[in-house]
Amino acid sequence: MPKLLPLIEHAVKKPVWDCRMCGQCVLHSTGMTCPMTCPKTLRNGPCGGVREDGNCEVKPEMRCVWVKAEQRSHSPANPHHWEEEFNDLRPPVDNRLQGTSSWVNLVTKRDRRTPAGWQGLSREQHSAVPGASMVEVDEVASLPIGFHS
């Protein structure tokens, strides 16, 4: 099952959101627009290169992912707290999770694990925080090599 989940997740999310299987999904807080489809894979808002017409600096024919995300974040169809979470500071991507199931990582809370320095702590302080090492799931379920785009 752990091997199958990434396949199922990809099959569902690729056609709808062009999912890149980063394994740490933030779709709900980015107006249901995948930030990994931004050519610069920016997770904290648009770069300064957005064109006057709202299209992407890199792909002039494409609407800026973050222009779309910002508009969609106000959609009344979404739960209210999603709109607030739009402004959250999202941590750096954990590149080890590429190709794994974000559903599994959500349940195990693996997707919320950040380096100690991100929380403003040195390592010694970090290990003193209760529960900091509670979830240590490094054996992540991977897609077969070459599966994802």
């Binding site: 610069k40 894979t41 904290n44 500071l89 750096p92 991507v93 380096p115 320095g117 390592r123």
Partner: peptide, 25 residues
């Protein structure tokens, strides 16, 4: 683009606070 600019701000600020992103002092 391993980090974005906002993340880099936080990481650089962390250096001044005495730790790398990893937490190493």
């Amino acid at each position: 683009f391993d980090l974005d600019s906002t993340q880099l701000i936080k990481v650089a600020s962390g250096l001044a606070e005495g730790h790398y992103l990893s937490g190493r002092a």
